[in-house]
Design a protein around this nucleic acid. Structure first.
Length: 417
RNA sequence: GUGGGUGUAGCUCAACUUGGAUAGAGCACUUGACUGUGGCUCAAGUGAUUGUGGGUUCAAAUCCCAUCACCCACCCCA
């Protein structure tokens, strides 16, 4: 009996052409991050369980039931990046090195959710964290950066939502305000919201249940209801910058995020094309996180984009590789010459391919055509003996006979035009 | 985690309702017509123990149970 191993639930294999698209995304993203002064970090997939309990919050689903834990050790596969970056920042005393840092990272995160389209158990985040400043310019920059990445990757259907939760005092004030004003409706809420009412009243605000929404809208909630003057000023500063630089946004006073560490600015980049997994990315400020985990009290902002969700919105090209030349041989006797030519081209950084399956010339051309390779060099028995090699332009269907010694320069010239 | 749907060649699907003999088609792939030369057309060929494991039956892709995976909604979030 043959045993076929299958991929683990909620994990995906990426292969061409999709894998090429991912590589392109990564190249673009890195260039943009570096343009904005963000430095790469590569952190482990394993972290202590307690790190996420203390930062993301024990009442969140992520920590409560979605972490992959290594039995008998308090070690988990990281479910998100921000808390980890905070741990890394504190552990290495980076505040002593410099009082301001900007980092970016690309890597896998793990959450034991029930998989759906755009929701995997192992998925990749494109993340950025800027640590050490309370300036609202930084909030605006990080939002602009996230939007820019999404746009430059080629996504058209997306929008930006943002809100401010305020400082800890403001957040508590908002929670109390919700409790006070909604106490009368407590029994009419959906079962989820009845639970939320006690342990996480902010989450009532983004409930999808129609009944709950009607009640929530009747609050006519606005940030001026709970933000202190400093936090309100900070948020206005962010909005003014976005206005000034024409970054389209929608202020949504009902936007709250599921992770405990957020304070002040929170935002989401959403799309209408992914069903209920509509967040392409999200982020916000977390002014208390570093100090909660034992570091200095420094302001920080960050975001994460979901690579796989972005991928779902991009068209997958049918043909994508970087091969420029296929070296075909008219007979097996010429194979070694073809191999020699391919080596020469590769030495000169001209991506080249040859046949490895003893195909007929016809089949080799067909194969080159299938790979979308623009130039085929044909090593023909007769021509080769006379010192010539054939160069065929596959798009124009033109073929010329060139001297062996001129081959490289001719290919190089073609490559330029 | 809750509720529902789906699972048939590499891909997209048909046959399932009403069980019946070699499970069909298109695309893709290989070969040939085209005589050392791709794309178009035509022809032939390769490729499926019907997700997996049980059960009912003379007989199961088809009915039943279990299991796995994916999809949709909820939940959650990127």
């Amino acid at each position: 009996m043959k045993q076929i191993f299958r991929s683990i639930r909620g994990t995906t294999d990426f292969y061409p052409p999709q894998s090429f698209v991912i590589e392109e995304i990564i190249e673009k993203v890195k260039a943009i991050f570096q343009n904005f002064g963000y430095e790469p970090i590569i952190l482990p997939h394993l972290e202590e369980e307690g790190l996420f309990k203390k930062s993301v919050g024990t009442i969140t689903d992520i920590v409560e039931k979605q972490m992959f834990k290594i039995e008998s050790k308090d070690i988990v596969l990281r479910p998100e990046g921000t808390a980890q970056v905070a741990r890394f920042y504190i552990e290495n005393n980076l505040s002593k090195l410099r009082d301001f840092h900007k980092f970016y990272y690309l890597g896998a995160m793990f959450r034991g959710e029930r998989p759906q389209k755009g929701r995997l158990r192992e998925f990749n985040h494109i993340g950025a964290e800027a640590i050490g400043s309370n300036s609202f310019y930084l909030d605006a920059e990080i939002i602009e950066l996230a939007v820019k990445i999404v746009r430059e990757i080629g996504i058209k259907d997306f929008s930006l939502k943002l809100n401010s939760l305020g400082c800890i005092k403001d957040k508590n004030r908002l929670a109390q305000l919700i409790k006070d004003k909604l106490a009368v409706y407590k029994n009419t809420f959906c079962p989820d919201c009845q639970k939320r009412f006690n342990y996480n009243p902010l989450r009532i605000l983004d409930c999808k249940n129609e009944g709950c929404r009607v009640i929530i809208h009747s609050l006519n909630l606005d940030r001026t209801n709970y933000l202190c003057s400093d936090c309100n000023e900070h948020f206005s500063g962010v909005l003014n910058l976005l206005d000034e630089f024409a970054i389209a946004y929608h202020y949504d006073p009902l936007l709250v995020r599921g992770l405990d560490y957020y304070t002040n600015t929170v935002f989401e980049i959403i799309t209408s094309l992914l069903g209920s997994q509509d967040a392409l990315g999200a982020g916000g400020r977390y002014n208390e996180l570093i100090s909660n985990l034992g570091g200095d009290r420094v302001g920080a902002v960050g975001f994460a984009l979901g690579l796989e969700r972005i991928l779902l919105l991009l068209d997958t090209p049918t043909q994508i590789n970087r091969l420029e030349v296929f070296v075909a041989s008219s007979s097996l006797e010429m194979y070694k010459e073809a191999y020699r030519i391919a080596r020469l081209l590769r030495e000169n950084n001209i991506p080249s391919e040859i046949d490895y399956k003893d195909r007929t010339l016809k089949a080799q051309l067909k194969y080159a055509n299938k790979l979308g390779i623009p130039i085929v060099i044909i090593v023909g028995d007769e021509e080769f003996k006379e010192g010539y090699i054939l160069v065929r332009d596959m798009e124009k269907s033109l073929q010329e006979k060139v001297r062996k010694e001129d081959l490289l320069s001719i290919i190089k010239r073609r490559k330029r035009c």
